[in-house]
Design a protein around this nucleic acid. Structure first.
Length: 271
DNA sequence: AGGGTGACCTGTCGGC
DNA sequence: TGCCGACAGGTCACCC
């Protein structure tokens, strides 16, 4: 469920509250995608410094080491002093003096991994190939254009791969391509500079807007404080196959790319 | 090295 | 009602 906006909304919903807390306990449920990478007991007594985000990863900085949290396809976090009793899909809990952080993840594609530092191999294995942060100043048109120029795959696939720009998943890839008038099947290398500039602007605008709207709640996403998002109410193409385009009223089409659905308007995105 | 495919896991929904 | 296949917001290991 979580793309960059949902992960950022989650971060904002508990980062300030957990900062300064001391780890009192770590509880593991069923196995997630990867093992924690250290004994839970080793984390007890450490304090939480801050919570950052890199792509779709949350980085929970401790006074020594950090936890990398990924929500996978179906994960969400909850944070509070008094959480209800854990259920069968709650697979990780970080109990701190400021409250408990809980990972709920039915499909278990998510993960919580400990690393000694951001540069340690355990962290770099996950963060090493992540592309530019789209909401940072480092994400500029020139480097974006250069990176896309070397890719012959379809632009939708390149956006999803995340090694050029970080954090764009299946919903927002379709949305930013609609707003820049680009067909998802077009080879990334064939985009002219003006079109890359338009795509760049759409990525910044759409992701920032989605964060402001609390992310997208399609099935059951909610932030760590339990708030649902509302961006799904303003999607232009995602999951709208057969419905009229909100701009030109043509039928929205869908197709499969790399075993994932893409949505586009054949009139607004001609090539 | 870039690009394509299967794999991981559970829940839900539509069709027969 | 029940079963079965397709699909779901991600991404990595593995092939060519």
């Amino acid at each position: 469920m979580p793309e960059l906006p949902e992960v950022e909304v989650t971060r904002l919903s508990f980062a300030a509250a957990i900062a300064g807390g001391t780890v009192l306990g770590v509880e593991l449920g069923k196995a997630l995608r990867w093992p924690l990478g250290c004994s839970p007991a080793r984390l007890i007594g450490r304090s939480v410094r801050a919570v950052r985000r890199r792509g779709k990863y949350l980085l929970i900085d401790l006074d020594r080491g950090l936890l990398l949290v990924h929500l996978g396809m179906s994960g969400s976090l909850q944070f509070g002093r008094q959480l209800p009793a854990p259920g069968g899909h709650d697979h990780f809990q970080l109990v701190t003096s400021h409250g408990t952080l809980r990972l709920h993840d039915p499909r278990r594609f998510g993960a919580v991994v400990y690393a000694e530092s951001e540069n340690a191999p355990a962290a770099q294995k996950l963060l090493g190939k992540i592309g530019m942060e789209p909401l940072s100043d480092a994400f500029a048109v020139d480097p974006f254009y250069c990176a896309l120029h070397g890719r012959r795959s379809a632009i939708k696939q390149v956006l999803l791969a995340g090694d050029v720009v970080a954090g764009i998943g299946n919903i927002y890839a379709s949305e930013v391509l609609f707003r820049s008038g680009i067909r998802p099947t077009l080879s990334a290398a064939r985009l002219t500079r003006p079109r890359v500039a338009k795509l760049h602007a759409a990525i910044k605008t759409v992701l920032a807007r989605a964060v402001a709207k609390g992310g997208s709640t399609l099935r059951n996403f909610s932030s760590a404080s339990g708030e649902c998002g509302h961006f799904q109410l303003e999607t232009m193409v995602y999951a709208r196959a057969g419905q009229p385009c909100r701009v030109c009223h043509s039928d929205i089409k869908s197709l499969r790319q790399g075993q994932r659905s893409s949505f586009y308007c054949p009139n607004c995105q001609k090539f």
